[in-house]
Simulated assay, not measured.
Amino acid sequence: MRSDDSRDLDRSDTDSVTVSTTDVGYRIDLPPQLAALNRSNVNVQSLAVERDETALQQAVKLDPLTAAVCTLEKTDEMVDGLLEANTEYLPELD
């Protein structure tokens, strides 16, 4: 697949409220073990897009890489810093 051929790429379109994926014409049924591994990540990512600051902080705390290097307090500080640094790009959170 060539990187400049957008027809072959799975893309996501976003607006201020929703995230949706574009179907590229094929579907793969994963073995249950792989689907479970993906689901654990998707569940965390779903929390992160709820437009709720508490849900966002919880989602980041559940991320395995973040949890491996940050305390819960440091994670809250990191999320607060990221939100502050990106205020002009983000919608209001609940």
Score class of each variant (00 low, 15 high):
3 S>F: 13
4 D>L: 05
36 A>H: 07
94 D>A: 06
54 T>W: 00
12 S>A: 14
77 E>W: 05
30 L>V: 02
89 Y>K: 10
66 T>E: 08
92 E>M: 13
3 S>T: 14
33 Q>H: 02
48 A>L: 03
76 D>Y: 01
74 K>L: 10
20 S>R: 15
20 S>H: 11
91 P>H: 02
12 S>F: 14
72 L>R: 11
2 R>C: 10
78 M>V: 12
69 V>G: 06
61 K>R: 10
43 N>K: 12
92 E>D: 15
15 D>K: 02
68 A>F: 04
33 Q>V: 06
80 D>H: 03
47 L>F: 12
82 L>F: 06
87 T>K: 14
87 T>G: 12
90 L>C: 03
40 S>N: 08
35 A>T: 04
78 M>N: 05
55 A>D: 15
31 P>L: 11
31 P>I: 12
65 L>Q: 10
58 Q>A: 11
4 D>N: 14
48 A>V: 03
64 P>C: 04
36 A>S: 08
3 S>H: 08
66 T>N: 08
75 T>E: 02
83 L>E: 00
90 L>P: 01
39 R>V: 02
7 R>D: 12
64 P>G: 02
30 L>Y: 06
33 Q>C: 01
68 A>N: 05
24 V>G: 03
32 P>H: 05
31 P>Q: 12
60 V>L: 04
60 V>F: 03
